[in-house]
Design a protein around this nucleic acid. Sequence first.
RNA 1: GCGCUCCUAGCUCAGCCGGAUAGAGCAACAGCCUUCUAAGCUGUGGGUCGGGCGUUCGAAUCGCCCGGAGCGCGCCA
Length: 576
Amino acid sequence: MTYVLDEIINGKLQSAFAALGLDEKYAAARPSDRPDLSDFQCNGALALAKIEKKNPRAIGEEIAARLREDKDFAKVSVDGPGFLNLTLTDSFLADVADRMAGDERFGCAVVATPKTVVMDYGGPNVAKEMHVGHLRSGVIGESMRRIEKFVGNRPIADVHFGDWGTPIGMILAEVIAADGNLDKMETYDIAEITRFYKQANSRCKEDPAAKETARQITARFQDGDPVYRKAWQHIRRVSVEAVKENYRELGVHFDLWLGESDAHETCFEIKRIAEEKGLLEYSDGAWIIRLDESNKPKPPVILEKSDGGFTYQATDLATIKMRVDDLHADEIIYFVDKRQSLHFEQVFEAAEKLGIAPNVKLLHIGFGTVNGADGKPFKTRDGGVMNLADLIKMSKDKVSESMPAADPANGLTQEYIDHLVEQVAVGAIKFQDLKNNIASGYVFELDDFANFDGKTGPYIQYAIARINSIMRKNKNITPGKVTITNAEERALVLRLSQLNNVVFRAAAELEPSIISDYTYTLAQLFSSFYNASPIMGAAGAEIAASRLTLAKLTRDVLVKLLELLGVEAPEIMLKA
RNA sequence: GCGCUCCUAGCUCAGCCGGAUAGAGCAACAGCCUUCUAAGCUGUGGGUCGGGCGUUCGAAUCGCCCGGAGCGCGCCA
């Protein structure tokens, strides 16, 4: 039996409400907005008063009278217009901490009915260097995958590689233009292929004829031309290797490395279903599905272009069908730049009309862009897009500047320090990405790279490293039963007790920032505890044992939280 | 033109399915290292929540209007 604090407190409220014949729907507690008055508050009396046309304070007092009989509450009061303020006893809270410390899930529940959640993030493309946009998608998606898994769902992450569209034709055209044919293709590595793509990209922007050639080659390639397909396989393989290396460094995991190409055959099926359902329409040489325009004008979904190639809307629909049929998805979640929201609205509506995803929840979680100081999407000095590898390198360079030298005196090897630099640098980048709401973008300040103070990944890593140090230096003490001896300890335990609530809210709202925010405040409370509650100088062995339990529990919870964010926790963290 | 999103402290952001005294980080200022890591802690200052009207006992939160910013709108993905 898991021990979930919110359920226990809500349970107490529910029985009080039920005993008074009040609707239990309003018997919900939440962390108090007024920590000076209470640990938890319940605003149910206010809502009930409106419905039952009674005085909210009178209802509140009736409920309070019941709750006061419960010895777990130190104080129950009705304040203001009818807020129910609940304060737990120190011994009850101490017991919560003991139970959390004794449970490998720290008192967190698991969902009653696990869902299969297909998660689509990353979305890198063949031959293109990964940039900060891919970073956000990967970092956010990876965190949500871990959160889904922790609460008991079955996430399946698919990278959904962009390996099928016009860029392929562009590269092929560019190589043919350079070499006369594709014979040398297999000798090109990722750097050369990327160079071909960049050239092709600027050529197609300037020259409509080049664009047309690329389009024709794309169509023939998709149609199955063996020479083109062979060249494509090389491009894809080399690109996947490069992308995997990028994601390995970031700690972003995928269960499936499928791509748009894998959906190609199913595109024909989508077209057939559309035809069967009478949804397919021929318009300006293209095959389209018209959408409902009664609410607002919405462009139609184009399945097949006038040149015969399928669009990415077609491949997205085909991919939905495959995820439903083959992976048995209950939910499909896309973590893609919010500028693509119209695309997903269109695709989801078409999927509904086609009936290819019955009872499957389709969600687009749109995230904001990474911006420069001017508030516009981040660009490098020469106006290009900041690529991911450069970004990571810049962060590492900054972290390296403040690293101590490897030295037998501090017990650190060069190998450890190199690893630490990576953990801190990547942790800083990822936390930055996860600390605000997904939908809001953030400003990427190069100058702030040297600064790891305040609400940052390294701050939390540092808190963990300090606890590790405490554990090392107090090996002779055995963690014991928790006793609350001061305000800092109480505040820490109270915050710890909200873990389950936080994790499930993050899962329900698909919002890792709920976790990053909680993680930060927990680390903050630990820092205060650290100053107020010494273990070595504790007044008595029992207090020392209690504090050691709190320190260890906090450390374990912080490590778990960072794990849910996809951030690593170094064992030792030193600065020069 | 149509649609979507946003406007909260000097800066970057939380809070938004109505509740009490609107919070944090950075920056600024003042303190704290002979004691478990100062990437830390403690404190101070800083707000017409873009503006207006409305709904409500109660609005940063809900509705409408206005102003400002960004993004997106059939054959790129």
